[in-house]
Amino acid sequence: MKQDITLIATAAMGLESVVAQEVKNLGYDPRIENGSVFFNAPVTAIPRCNLWLRTADRVKILVGQFEATTFDDLFEATKALPWERYISEDGAFPVQGKSVKSQLHSVPDCQAIVKKSIAERLKLKYGLASRMPENGPLYKVEVALLKDTASLTLDTSGAGLHKRGYRVGQGDAPLKETMAAALVLLTNWKPDFPLIDPFCGSGTIPIEAALIGQNIAPGFNREFASEGWNLIGSSKWDQAFQEAENLANYDQKLSITGSDIDHNMVSIANKNAMEAGLSDLISWKQMQVRDLSIKENNGYVITNPPYGERIGDKKKVGDLYQAFGHVMQQHPSWSVYVLTAFDEFEARYGQKPTKKRKLFNGFIRTDYYQYFGKKIN
């Protein structure tokens, strides 16, 4: 039996190349499509990728892909796939679906047909006369139709990979952990340099930076849907967790600070850091951005300040950015990275960026402004 399988690391729009680089760093050969990174790998990649991918949304197995313009096509092609390789005899396999620009546009019908087809295949392979028991491990199946091409996948992650397990509190507009990690990875920050987030909110960027700085696997403190799958086996999961523990650099010293004007958010950020086991690595301060005190050279600011929706007053946001720009212009050795949807950011900050990258924070189109500091030796 062929050992390699095709995996898909799903990604937020604009982050595909970041996810692909992470996949490559794990030793696999990625191929990018819209919102997805495909790669062939042994089953050991499932626990490794779930544990290590900081910016991916989920890790899925591509079971099969084929053209389907009729329900008969969908049924027969689904039944021809080797579902018994993945789903155990007692496995529960709910089916989700979506259809875009396809003749088979009724998603409930597609779900029902795929469910019936998989069940018939599994009953035949396992020699069952009655219905599948479905009282064992969970295997979430998705049938996705795009322009009459059906893709059938299994979700190995369970809860989205942004759910690291440390968030005990959050504000009104929290930044996803996966996006926060991407903001750090899109810089050339190294753990030897100081890092500040002056609009830290619930602390996601400083916490993700600390995880990156000490090379701690982001999924180390959570569970995954595929941990109980026979396909992988508990020993491979144990090996992946042990690898993560061995590669963590808990002795790496860090200088990371998060500050916010709201003392309640600073308290929440501190609690989140404690839950992540990073309370000793990050300093938290309640202050306005105009009071930001920087004493070191060659540092990094990575931040996701209010856009205006959260404050509701465009002038206040503009004044906030103006004060922020005034502070940072006094520290030219610092590199500044700002994710915002505020359309007057450049004018109010007072400086054109070295680079700018379009990203989507949820469904909000944003720009990632990048100002490279002039390093002092």
Rank of each mutant, 00 (worst) to 15 (best):
I5S: 06
A11L: 06
E16Q: 01
S17H: 10
V18D: 13
N25H: 13
L26V: 07
G27F: 04
E33H: 06
N34W: 06
V37F: 03
N40M: 07
A41W: 02
A45G: 05
L51W: 12
W52M: 13
R54V: 12
R58E: 12
K60E: 15
I61H: 09
Q65C: 07
T69A: 10
T70Q: 08
L74T: 06
K79Q: 14
P82W: 14
E84M: 10
I87A: 11
S88I: 05
Q96Y: 09
G97F: 02
S99L: 05
S102P: 05
H105N: 13
C110I: 01
A112L: 08
I113H: 07
K115C: 01
K116G: 09
L128W: 09
E134N: 02
N135C: 09
N135W: 06
Y139I: 04
L154M: 01
G158W: 02
A159L: 14
H162S: 14
R164G: 03
G165H: 11
G165V: 09
R167W: 00
G169M: 07
G171F: 07
A173E: 10
P174N: 13
E177L: 11
M179C: 14
A182G: 01
A182M: 00
L185A: 01
P198I: 01
C200N: 11
G203Y: 13
G203R: 10
P206N: 10
G213K: 02
Q214N: 09
N221V: 04
R222L: 08
E223T: 15
A225C: 06
S226D: 03
S226K: 02
G228D: 12
I232W: 00
K236S: 11
A240D: 12
A244I: 13
E245Q: 14
N246Y: 05
L247G: 08
N249Q: 15
D251T: 13
K253M: 12
G258H: 11
G258C: 14
D260C: 11
I261F: 07
D262W: 02
N264K: 15
M265R: 13
A269F: 09
K271I: 05
K271H: 11
N272L: 00
E275G: 03
M287Q: 15
D291I: 00
L292E: 03
K295M: 10
E296V: 08
N298S: 08
G299I: 03
V301W: 04
P306V: 08
Y307P: 04
I311S: 08
G312A: 13
G312M: 11
K314I: 14
G318W: 03
L320I: 08
Y321D: 00
Q322R: 12
F324Q: 04
H326V: 03
H331T: 05
S333L: 00
W334R: 09
V336D: 03
V336F: 03
V338Q: 01
V338L: 02
L339A: 00
T340I: 10
T340G: 09
A341Q: 06
D343C: 07
E344D: 15
R348A: 03
T354V: 08
F360G: 05
F360A: 07
R365H: 09
Y369K: 04
G373T: 02
K375L: 12
